[in-house]
Design a protein around this nucleic acid. Sequence first.
DNA 1: TGAAACAAGTTTGTAATACAAACTAGTTTT
DNA 2: AAAACTAGTTTGTATTACAAACTTGTTTCA
Lengths: 107, 107
Amino acid sequence: MSPLKPDLHAILDLDRIVHEPARLAILTVLAAAESVEFLFLQRITGLSKGNLSSHTQKLEAAGFLETLKAFRGRIPVTSFQITEDGRAALHAYHKQLRALLPKEGQP
Amino acid sequence: MSPLKPDLHAILDLDRIVHEPARLAILTVLAAAESVEFLFLQRITGLSKGNLSSHTQKLEAAGFLETLKAFRGRIPVTSFQITEDGRAALHAYHKQLRALLPKEGQP
DNA sequence: TGAAACAAGTTTGTAATACAAACTAGTTTT
DNA sequence: AAAACTAGTTTGTATTACAAACTTGTTTCA
């Protein structure tokens, strides 16, 4: 069988929740920290508040992160934590990408 | 500066034309052959005709492939060829992905 | 011969999406 | 107490991915 075919299906089967750049960026940050605050996330990603809010909601609906609402003094602070499922999904996504990326300098 | 930030922008700057899985699959096939016929492409990707047609149109509009219409006997046959721009975009995309993928087995 | 089935794509309609503007609810400043 | 600020969410919109239905032509069959 052609060596191309499996790669093609790997491409078409990529997890779309993770594949979206904004969400991949969010998960990447969350994977590197215990927990991350909304405003910090907004600043380093450059996403608008509305857009960030909807992506985190989508990631939460997928079970890939948890939202923690707290107060600092009297100001509300929303933080996010990646879940085990989220970490697994991110690793699986990385693995899929590695599998379909040609080696550097390959035709 | 945090080592995370550049990666984040690499993620958010991914070329959306190439990033879409269906189109990435198409470009991947085209990059491996002189030219590829519509129906062959449809069969190995599993995309519907309509979907394949609109993705190839989008890739053509981006200048990433060329559409060649011919006849085999009296039956029309549409073939596609990746352009230099398309190949460059695909390679750039691969490079960006490599840059942002953590090494295997890294936290 | 002409009707029905088939081939190769394209156009059209639709549901889902990404995104930012506008809004909400509360707090601090003036 | 009014104005300005903070932290997010909801709403509206333009784009998109996708498949169903259509178009144009060819072959088969009655």
